[in-house]
Write a protein that binds this DNA or RNA. Structure first.
Lengths: 224, 224
DNA sequence: ATTGACACGAATGTCAACAATTATGTAGTC
DNA sequence: GACTACATAATTGTTGACATTCGTGTCAAT
């Protein structure tokens, strides 16, 4: 955390990590001055960070009130996975058409990292790498639009997962990623679509989206 | 343009208008100081405006280089409409389930404005109102996620439309919006989905997405 | 005792000057 | 004459101080 040039992305990542590790709970207030002290940067930069985090849906900024860690409700969680599915379908579609050997190599390389993290039992790294795998797919699809929106959705997915995961939930293992790579390489568009769909469905099915209760901190938002 | 309290949204809208009216062509550079003079605001605020415009995909910001009006290629244009379709399908789905009489009234009221603008032949207002109709649907669907993403896509749609519209293109008339309202109210989910699909397809079909040439100003982006 | 208003404190929002980076024009050399 | 190196000008990026807004605690009045 003691980096020489604390980049905006760096700080975002650290905050994201804290949320995934449950060190920061949804609803927590994030004071600008506080953050600027912790990270040793100017408040202006903290402001940029919060803007990015808001765009990714990790925090909600209320004018003249401050920034809070978001508390997406079950409906929003479902929307996130619905959209992810639709976008990643499109990504896969394009990848099947234009994938190169070099692309395959990058995917294989990433998969290796995922397997290593799993073997070591490093859960945080696993979650992070899993998300990055999906972002890598979008990158290779060469669509800045899909990439940009998916970025926000993947980040949101982590938050949703933290909030609604069942206790006995196991990690989204890299096995299905292996499958995806193979089927994309084979050029089977329909199969690839199916594979992506079930992969994302598996992740969503691991969640418990039945609860619709409103957290206590949401109260003042309820009354607008 | 001489507003007393030039809001960020206000300025964004004005710039958006200028692009739709072809007063600002894709690739045009937007200097911060220049903008701050024109709108009579501080450069810091211009910076916020540009950030929002970048998020909506209207401008591309290159570090230490400046901001330019985006030039989405045909592929991106297709992605925009693909995503819009998927998102608005979801919006319609939710609306059919939870629409209220009050909601219908708001839609009817908006439709009236659209018809008035069309009758007056006010093309700019027509384009603007048409986009707002779709945003209103998302608002009524009560999903901040769908709303936020759709916002960016609708704005991008305008830009894409300006760039790729055929000469003889006629406006996206309010007739199909009328149809949509009726079928949503009827509760026919399948029909509503179909209606939204064809509506968006009509808009996309009015475009000529065959050209794949790179505009001259993109050159330096090509070489990374 | 409860409620209302007022004032104080703290956090956010805004701005203008300063620093860093990039583009441009000029001179010098081969 | 063309190409490189340097100096200058223009533009973006950053910082710290100032203004504004909102929450909180106190006090008085009913």
């Amino acid at each position: 955390m003691e980096k020489r040039k604390p980049d905006v992305a760096q700080i975002c990542q650290t905050i994201w990590q804290s949320i995934v590790e449950k060190k920061l709970r949804p609803g927590t207030r994030l004071k600008e001055e506080q953050l600027s002290e912790v990270f040793g940067v100017s408040r202006a930069r903290v402001r940029q960070v919060l803007a990015v985090l808001q765009r990714d849906g990790l925090v909600s900024i209320i004018p003249n009130r401050g920034a809070f860690v978001s508390e997406p409700d079950a409906d929003e969680a479902r929307d996130v996975f619905y959209l992810r599915t639709k976008i990643e379908e499109r990504v896969v579609e394009r990848l099947v058409e234009r994938i190169s050997e070099q692309d395959i190599n990058r995917l294989e390389g990433h998969l290796k990292k995922e397997l290593a993290a799993q073997a070591k039992g490093d859960r945080l790294a696993s979650v992070k790498l899993s998300g990055e795998f999906h972002m890598l797919l979008a990158t290779l699809a060469e669509s800045t639009l899909l990439h940009g929106i998916l970025q926000a959705l993947v980040v949101r997915s982590s938050l949703v997962t933290v909030m609604y995961r069942r206790e006995e939930m196991h990690d989204c293992g890299p096995d299905e990623h292996r499958e995806l790579i193979d089927i994309i390489r084979s050029g089977d568009k329909k199969g690839a679509l199916q594979c992506m769909q079930t992969h994302l469905k598996h992740i969503e099915d691991e969640l418990d989206l039945s609860q619709n209760d409103v957290s206590s901190r949401d109260l003042w938002q309820v009354f607008k």
